[in-house]
Amino acid sequence: MSTLEIRGLQVSVNTDAGAVEILKGVDLTIKSGETHAIMGPNGSGKSTLAYSIAGHPKYSITGGTVTLDGVDLLEMTVDERAKAGLFLAMQYPVEVPGVSVSNFLRTAATALRGEAPKLRTWVGEVKDAMEALKMDPAFATRNVNEGFSGGEKKRHEIMQLELLKPKIAILDETDSGLDVDALRIVSEGVVRAKEANNLGVLLITHYTRILRYIKPDFVHVFANGKIVEEGGAELAEKLEANGYAEYVGS
């Protein structure tokens, strides 16, 4: 049983015009097996929440705490946070020229498991993960995210989620840019990871359609750098009907 606890998190981003405050005190607790959806308009700070928890150097934490099972994540380097059990599926996964998917996955698995996975079982693991996400086997020989379509990038992220077995996963707009079929395949991957590892999920999205496949236990409305309303799955239906108008501009 794991718990990611975010308390009073304040984050600013450094720009040419100086530091700009984005997150203005975020409180959120995510436990193993739970699915939390964070929904909100563009520019509300949803992605900043994801990237600052993962430790992106662009953001400065100006207040608050983030702990995983009581251990301070904010003191850790980016790789240490991953080793502690955190995973971030990115909205825009980064190209790494000259590094093959198979080399990348094996390096990551070796780092996270503390030893190189046995070659025979590892090859099977990767094959199964790729098949489950309906990915061509040739995918493993391609360079990380280089020339991938939007859908391929997202499948690759979810394949990592299934292979690397984190405790808590943050999915940053994993649904964006996916057609209906790809959305279903990717969502099924998330559900499998949840069932296999009792994963806790923080799902960031602008739209409700992914919630048809991944049922949220909690929905949090995010606006202007903080959570402005919370509820169950029924809150998503209300947002679907009414949009974010009542939360912005205030």
Binding site: A54, V78, F87, L88, M90, V94, A111, Q160
Partner: peptide, 12 residues
């Protein structure tokens, strides 16, 4: 690139 790799547990 470094952030992406490190976010998968890979040391700097």
């Amino acid at each position: 690139q470094l952030f992406y790799l490190m976010s998968r547990g890979i040391e700097l």
